[in-house]
Design a protein around this nucleic acid. Structure first.
Length: 506
RNA sequence: GGUCCUGUGGCCGAGUGGCUAGGCAGAGCUCUGCAAAAGCUCCUACAGCGGUUCGAAUCCGCUCGGGACCUCCA
């Protein structure tokens, strides 16, 4: 099998993935800031890296997947004062900061569960790692790359840039950065505008604050990820993921901090997902165009024509390569919804089929049961390409395209248009197992209808029996009545070839 | 202003030199008591202008359009 190749944002090219420790992978992904509800844009990295996580595990790696919860330390420009974002909202909502943080953490976990994302191996919180952050800042000061002013500590970018390549990850030119001036709080405290905060002095109105060698304050944003990644994954680790918008300054700063502290570049493969756009614009707080996940699931938002199932969103995201922008629209989402249904229906049919009995039936009915060489070759090609596509920088869109090419084959076998025995037993079983692996195991897709109610199944079996009897008597009044009334309840009955019936909840 | 990315059929989106992407929508046909589903077929495009090449959506240049980052941001 081909090697896994990943696009490394740092080198700007695809590289063969070789983990630092054979058999093990350390992966860090920037988690959510739990000062508010997650929106559609947030869904992308967590679904993307969930698939990466699943795929790496499938390849046999033991993966430690660390995804933090940022529950303190981000700054938000609020008038003239840079205020701890979480503290600000807490005041507005009259909540304890930790209550607020807990609320949105819970909501985030709930949404991730809806998307069927696997839980990370470790989910550290920023507030739980103040000590590690303080230690790291101390080290940076000791190394001479950070300085204290008025109870705040800043990283000396100019000094760092003199011996290291600051700006390489984000393609930034240090001289340009030094020129860029902007009125930010604390700007006069910095030796240089490009310097970034490691620790911020907290004014009395800050609710979230901690004691430090530099006085009462709170940590800078970038140091949080560096401290937690170092603690759980070591000075050097394999993969660091996140949205492209984090390239600068966040990830660039992480590199600088960790490089000085640990005397080595922290990350071997930087992987960044692109943005979700709406009407061509990035979905983000600053653009005021976000659709929250709860709104998406409920359809309760002016731009939404209807509610969308979490699996539809997941499928929608996987239909595009993670490094391309993905434009939101009702039309696109509804197309994804239908596509997913078609794929899932075929997938379920395939799993319910069995090679031997079907092949036997074919022989009895006098059809040829010879293997169709052309079909056999086509199917095995489509199947063997799946891992190759995944190995090519996680080309989920291509994997889905191949699956869709297999859908007509599956449906035809189910409807006896093609005998199952047109495929060899090996290929048929490979088809079954690979589809199970990719659809459920790696892509993490699930049934949209959740009709796992045994009693309902029993009732439906009964109604189907009655309807079959009615149909055999040509009592179409009864058979239509059953079908129509069920349709009114949102349950669709479908007559299949060969007299079978199936049903699905709308 | 600086750095970088991007422009594919009605819509969404793969695709880095030659070979049908795929999905959704639309049209026709088949199957069928009807319906739905399913199957088959069709619609086959690469912003514009030049250049390189036997050959370009794919490489180069220019023009026009869109976007991201430079500030919190997935």
């Amino acid at each position: 099998m081909s090697d896994l190749k990943v696009y490394n944002s740092y080198s700007r090219q695809k590289e063969v993935f070789t983990p630092l420790t054979p058999g093990h992978v350390g992966m860090y992904v920037c988690g959510p800031t739990v000062s508010g509800e997650s929106h559609l844009g947030h869904a992308r990295p967590y679904i993307t890296f969930d698939v990466v996580f699943r795929y790496l595990q499938h390849l046999g790696y033991k993966v430690r997947y660390v995804r933090n919860i940022t529950d303190a330390g981000h700054f938000e420009e609020e008038g003239r004062e840079a205020v701890d974002k979480i503290a600000t909202k807490a005041v507005l909502e009259k909540l304890e900061p930790m209550e607020l943080v807990q609320k949105y953490t819970n909501l985030f976990h709930w949404a991730m569960e809806q998307f069927n994302t696997l839980r990370p191996s470790i989910e550290p919180t920023a507030t739980g790692h103040i000590v590690e952050q303080v230690e790291m800042i101390k080290k940076l000061i000791a190394e001479g790359y950070a300085y204290e002013t008025n109870g705040s500590v800043y990283f000396d970018v100019k000094k760092y840039a003199a011996s290291y390549d600051y700006g390489k990850l984000s393609g930034r030119v240090i001289d340009d950065l030094l020129e860029t001036t902007r009125e930010l709080e604390g700007q006069d405290e910095k030796r240089d505008t490009a310097d970034f905060a490691l620790w911020k002095n907290a004014s009395p109105e800050h609710i979230m604050r901690w004691q430090s060698p530099w006085g009462v304050g709170y940590p800078g944003w970038h140091i949080e990820c560096s401290a937690m990644a170092t603690k759980y994954l070591g000075a050097q680790f394999d993969i660091h993921g996140g949205g492209m918008d984090l390239l600068f300054p966040h990830h660039e700063s992480e590199i600088a901090q960790s490089t000085i502290c640990n005397h080595s570049a922290p990350v071997r493969y930087w992987i960044h997902n692109n943005m979700i756009t709406i009407n061509g614009k990035k979905m983000g707080k600053s653009y005021n165009n976000v659709i929250k996940l709860t709104e998406l699931f409920s359809g309760n938002h002016p731009v939404l024509e209807k509610a969308y199932h979490p699996m539809t969103i997941r499928f929608f995201i996987l239909q595009t390569h993670y490094r391309s922008t993905l434009d939101f629209s009702n039309e696109a989402l509804q197309a994804a919804e239908k596509g997913l249904k078609r794929l899932w229906d075929a997938y379920e049919k395939l799993q319910a089929m069995s090679y031997t009995s079907e092949a036997g039936t074919r022989q009895l009915s006098g059809q040829k049961s010879e293997v169709d060489a052309e079909l056999e070759a086509k199917c095995s090609k489509l199947i063997t390409e799946l891992p190759e596509f995944m190995n090519d920088d996680f080309s989920t869109a291509k994997v889905l395209a191949n699956m869709f090419e297999l859908v007509p084959v599956i449906n035809s076998m189910k409807d006896n248009i093609i005998p199952v025995s047109a495929l060899s037993k090996e290929t048929f079983e490979l088809l079954q197992s690979q589809m199970r692996l990719y659809v459920e195991g790696i892509f993490g897709l699930q049934s949209v209808t959740e009709a796992d109610n045994e009693k309902l199944k029993g009732v439906m079996d009964l109604l189907i029996d009655i309807r079959k009897e009615a149909k055999s008597r040509k009592d179409f009044v009864t058979s239509d009545k059953i079908r129509n009334q069920l349709a009114g309840l949102g349950i669709l009955l479908k007559d299949e070839k060969g007299g079978g019936m199936s049903w699905a909840i709308e």
